[in-house]
Design a protein around this nucleic acid. Structure first.
Lengths: 354, 354
DNA sequence: GTTGGCACTCCATTCTACTGAGTGCTGACC
DNA sequence: GGTCAGCACTCAGTAGAATGGAGTGCCAAC
């Protein structure tokens, strides 16, 4: 855990390497408390926290300093403090500890993956449900792209006079299809010929490795079919066709906010698959595992935080899992859950690939 | 429109055939107004409504009667009236008129289906989005069951030493898969043999027509594979594997209620595919096209209404579309939208079947 | 049967006062 | 110089009282 490398992208405070130890403890206490209670935290409460053994007056002085430096904010005078995005960021980067699933959760994960079987889509969907249950967040699972999986079967099935279906089976068990419009009527025999030719051209290779070199069978009409077939294959290999998004536990967003407007705007975002997938990829590309508040660019999610975790299949990062919650989400838990589930999912997918 | 046959399942009022014409007009006005404003409607406002040309005092008397008969309710004395479930029911059955999409909406539908193409799942998903947009409700689309589509292709693809994938292509373009655990190692040749045998046994029939009769190839090891293959086919044909649910516009539920708890519980229901599918089927089976409030048995949805519409493919009812909104949803619009979209979707699917 | 008039109800809003959690400051202490 | 107790102050939240107004039910008259 502890993504100790990222952050430090804003040169705001005069402190490149953080807070003195007591201020850290106080910030830690405020964040932890606020995550639990969703109520502004006063100096009185912080006194009880471990690692802080000074009077409330001293704590107040430190909290004022933390506010000056942008780690804390006050909803109004005479209220307690709540963490700012910067405060959460520091918490995630330097405090908060590794975090771990409770035994029940760990048991749940183990059980899930022991019994997980069947089609990959179903498993990914259920994984999103599992993650959501574990963390009380909304979980997003982007299926591994199949660019690297090798082709195990290529088939052309005629559906209508000029309509055929290209059906591809990949080594990881994914089945993809693409309907093909044919320029002229093609009978079953010719389709079969074309399919055989396509198979010879592509079997054992990954979808992304299919090149556009001409393949000829000697028969021009069959060649035409093969040609559109190759195009279809390459289309399947392209990114746009691949990403499947599974969202689980969106109801948790309704529990996280009490402003119904916020809920609506967050749900609206979640309905836009492309936005979500892009968002996750973006955060990952920037080397972050957590994006808090406005750190990701999506305004409607300004009061949310995102935890992302890559899913590696055979050492290659292909899938992504993400957790979406309010900025006052339980980061250590979310990170732990995402990591555990991400790892196990990756293992699982690696196994079924070979 | 106008499902003038259902209802009359509770013998509450002494009126088997309803309200005198003015009371109907008043009820109509109250419902219409309340759907628009979400505010209790007073006698003063009803005066302006068409078909009602009496004084507010008379209207008050009628409204009192309507309340006595259970069509209206009063949040408190000295407030206006709001419709009860029974009031909505009467509105839907006898008032409200046919309802129609506005030109913009109709244009949207036309454009959608003119440009709809590609894989069926994608189309259904987008259809749910369309419906949600048109009606400001949450749309549910249950994909047509493939029980009736005939098999066009059956294939077995080896994925691992004892793992194979059964891939089935149906005449409607659906591709289904089912992983198969084999008792012992089976080489590609034997898989191909078994697949050929399965094909001979099942091609041209519908999934639901696959019977369990023994098929023999002469080779016991191959027969074993065929046997699990037949089981897998029959499993695909069974209801449990078939229903795909697409939910669109769940964010509209957050806009419909201002109690965040309600939103959460509704979303929780929507996450349970099985519950939703069962609910829709249930309402449809009871011959209703609208289920209001507690008419369906799902308590968390007591403040919601559901509009369902069957989707007929080649005259056979196979799919379902549903709209979920608050009980004060715009029924005429929802019914119109569901009918138009349902029809066009059915047509579309029928076309691509042959 | 319908209507205008009238007394009544009660939610919603506003205002006030009050409480209490929490702060910032200051002067004393170690 | 950092720490701490004490104190004055602030201000959201709550409760209670007053007000306004939308709406009702009833009744006598048409």
């Amino acid at each position: 855990m502890q993504t100790s490398d990222n952050s430090r992208h804003d040169g705001a405070g005069p402190d490149p390497l953080a807070l003195d130890v007591r201020k850290s403890a106080i910030l830690n206490a405020v964040v932890t408390e606020y995550i639990g209670s969703a109520q502004p935290v006063g100096s009185q409460h912080v006194m009880d926290a471990p690692g802080v053994s000074v009077s409330s007056a001293t704590i107040r002085a430190d909290m004022a300093a933390l506010e000056r430096d942008g780690y804390l904010a006050q909803p109004h005078t005479s209220a307690g403090r709540i963490p700012t995005d910067k405060g959460y960021r520091f918490f995630v980067d330097h405090l908060g500890g590794p975090g771990a699933l409770d035994p029940v959760g760990r048991q749940q994960v183990r059980q899930f993956f022991d019994h997980a079987h069947g089609e990959i889509e179903l498993m990914l969907e259920k994984t999103s449900g599992l993650l959501a249950d574990l963390t009380d967040c909304t979980a997003m699972v982007v299926g591994p792209s199949h660019e690297l999986a090798t082709l195990r079967s290529v088939q052309l099935v005629g559906l209508g006079p000029r309509l055929a279906l290209l059906v591809v089976v990949l080594a990881d068990g994914a089945v993809q299809k693409q309907s093909i419009d044919l320029a002229e009527d093609v009978d079953e025999g010719r389709l079969a010929d074309a399919a055989r030719c396509l198979a010879a051209h592509s079997l054992g290779r990954a979808l992304s490795q299919i090149d556009a070199t001409l393949v000829t069978t000697g028969d021009p009409a069959t060649d035409a079919v093969v040609s559109v077939g190759v195009d279809a294959l390459r289309h399947l290999g392209s990114a746009e066709a691949g990403d499947q998004l599974f969202v689980g536990g969106s109801s948790h967003m309704a529990a996280a906010f009490d402003a119904v407007d916020t809920v609506r705007s967050v749900l609206t975002i979640l309905e836009q698959q492309l936005v979500v997938v892009t968002l996750l990829r973006d955060v990952l590309d920037r080397g972050l595992s957590v994006a808090i508040g406005t750190e990701h660019g999506v305004e409607p999610l300004a009061s949310c935080a995102i935890v992302v975790m890559p899913v590696s299949v055979d050492g290659e990062v292909t899938g992504t899992i993400g957790l979406l919650g309010p900025t006052r989400m339980n980061y250590p838990l979310a990170l732990a859950a995402a990591q555990v589930v991400g790892n196990r999912l990756g293992q699982r997918l690696s196994e079924s690939r070979r």
